[in-house]
Design a protein around this nucleic acid. Structure first.
Lengths: 204, 204
DNA sequence: CCAGGACTGGACTTGCCGGTCCACTTTCAT
DNA sequence: ATGAAAGTGGACCGGCAAGTCCAGTCCTGG
């Protein structure tokens, strides 16, 4: 993978990835051709193959990486300070809003399915995103525990895993139904479970 | 959509759908051609188009319907009697086992992404499956409430929605990571939340 | 037994789309 | 300034897979 060595080249490469991401979100991987991407990014076939010698697969992989980065970036500010119940609800709102905006397109999900089997790289990208995301949530839960908002008995990693699963499921259900009800339900019950953990612990 | 009018015809149609489902699970929609399906089902192009005049899309839709049916069928016995904590854990085990077996293939997910945008029918199938599935879970929760294992204050529909979201997310994460940890975490914390609801209610 | 429709086989067409090629222009180091 | 390397444009190729066609064969009812 020959990295572009001039400023112009790097700009073109970036333009391709971002433009491709747009088109892919709009049309879905299955219905997007290199020509669509070429049109959108005002480039030519040779440029596409110049920057991505591995062809479409390599380009899709780059887009997947790009999109994966954005997922966390968008939540960064909220994920960074999950230290009070209010902050957890702010995060909740941010997640819901983010996915409501890009109504029924989960760029990563579809990208993964397209490249998935052939490229182990795609799996790695998604797996790594999940790992980081979950770690951030776990950090937030640990903060709560440090502040004694929840008891020490809470299984941090399992709670984080469950919460993440709820978000993923909420999003994927939203894609077929168009409604964010499940996403909200998952987030709300997940947070409430944490909040109620103290009560449960104290009673026993 | 001319339904086959002879026994032989119906058998062939069924063979096509079931065989196509197999191939699709094995290779993924993106990498499956009509010829693959033709080979597997020992049929010919003309038969494929005879039974599915709408071409590949129509066939994929039929497969989606078939797969959707199986999802609920497989859980039917457990979903039907969610009346004790033990039964909930049996259901949990059944779900985990089911998805661990078909390791990294969510037939519906990928089918949806392929046909999705073009055919509103695909959305409808998935949405309907979700609706029914959630309703079954909600029924189970209502049973618990009727037996006073959980307090009346529990929001049945929201809890069911959250649980379903957790399952969906757990499955989709499993597809990229290969691990069922998230699915288990989501199911376990979901059920535990129900169990602890009584404690929380009594304390307040 | 014999029409007529249901069903089957597979060769053929068609168009799309990933990928290649090469001629050309721009950039930049010396 | 100049030539090599980087970057760009777009015509072209070739294969693949969806979809068509028609010539059959097999049921079924009368």
């Amino acid at each position: 993978m020959p990295e572009a060595s001039t400023a112009k080249g790097r700009a073109t490469r970036a333009r391709i990835v971002e433009g491709a991401a747009e088109v892919l979100r709009e049309q879905g991987v299955a219905f997007t051709t290199l020509d669509d991407i070429r049109d959108r990014t005002r480039t030519s076939k040779s440029q596409l193959f110049h920057y991505f010698p591995g062809g479409k697969d390599e380009l899709l992989l780059a887009v997947a990486e790009f999109e994966a980065g954005r997922v966390l970036e968008d939540q960064q500010p909220h994920l960074d300070c999950l230290d009070s119940w209010e902050s957890w609800y702010r995060w909740r709102d941010a997640v819901v809003e983010r996915y409501e905006l890009q109504n029924d397109q989960c760029p990563l999900g579809s990208l993964f399915l397209q490249v998935g089997r052939s490229e182990p790289g795609a799996r790695a990208i998604v797996a790594e995103l999940m790992r980081q995301w979950q770690e951030r949530i776990a950090d937030g839960i640990r903060t709560l525990r440090a502040r004694e908002l929840i008891p020490a008995s809470v299984d941090v990693d399992r709670s984080a895993a469950a919460l993440l699963a709820g978000v993923q499921g909420g999003v994927s259900i939203m894609m077929s139904t168009g409604s964010s009800a499940h996403l909200k339900a998952a987030l709300d019950t997940g947070i409430e479970q944490l909040r109620s953990a103290k009560a449960v612990a104290e009673r026993s």
